[in-house]
Simulated scan of single mutants.
Amino acid sequence: MNMTKTSTDAPLSKADATALILAAKAAHGLTWEAIAEGIGMSPVWTTSAALGMNSMPLEKAQALVALLDLPAAVVPALVAFPTKVWDQAVPTDPAIYRLYEIVGVYGETLKEIIQEKFGDGIMSAIDFTMHVDKVEDPKGDRVKITMNGKFLPYKAW
């Protein structure tokens, strides 16, 4: 697979870098878990950064590029700070839609319980970790998503 760019090409966008990463991931037959292990980070964070929603520290970007045999031009795109924007319409992909559905049905419940336990504030999505696990079950395997974010109280001034 030849994914090289010449020095006269414009810098890669995060979307361009993501396209190259996805193509290399498929070509190498790697999972996100294997890629994350290869660069020493969690699968959720690695996937999010590879999809353009987080910036990578330089050494992790270089490790990802080396692991996937990508052109060096991908590194600056991975290191660049993202603009975290997503379509505001409800998505139609079933896996993503169900997460929206969970927030739609349980969002206010979660807010009430968080505020009852912690006070008026939010869970950080910056000081945050998330893990996705498969739980074997005789009635059908289960998806377990664990989110762990720092509580940030609202300030009065």
Rank of each mutant, 00 (worst) to 15 (best):
N2P: 08
N2F: 09
K5F: 15
K5D: 07
P11E: 02
A15S: 12
A15G: 10
D16C: 03
D16G: 04
L20I: 03
L20Q: 03
L20N: 02
A24P: 02
A24L: 06
A27R: 14
H28A: 15
G29W: 02
W32C: 02
A34G: 10
I35L: 07
I35Y: 06
G38Y: 02
M41A: 07
S42R: 09
W45F: 14
W45V: 10
T47C: 07
S48K: 13
A49C: 09
L51N: 11
S55I: 10
S55Y: 08
M56V: 12
P57K: 14
L58N: 09
E59V: 11
K60A: 13
Q62C: 11
A63K: 08
L64K: 06
V65R: 10
A73Y: 03
V75M: 06
A77H: 00
L78C: 03
L78G: 02
F81C: 01
K84Y: 08
D87F: 03
Q88F: 05
Q88R: 14
Q88V: 15
A95L: 06
A95I: 05
R98F: 04
L99I: 13
Y100H: 15
E101C: 06
E101P: 01
I102L: 10
V103K: 07
G107I: 11
L110M: 08
L110C: 03
I122C: 01
M123F: 04
I126D: 02
D127I: 13
F128W: 13
M130I: 15
V132E: 02
E136P: 00
R142F: 00
K144S: 06
K144F: 02
I145P: 03
M147L: 10
K150I: 00
F151Y: 04
Y154I: 11
W157R: 10
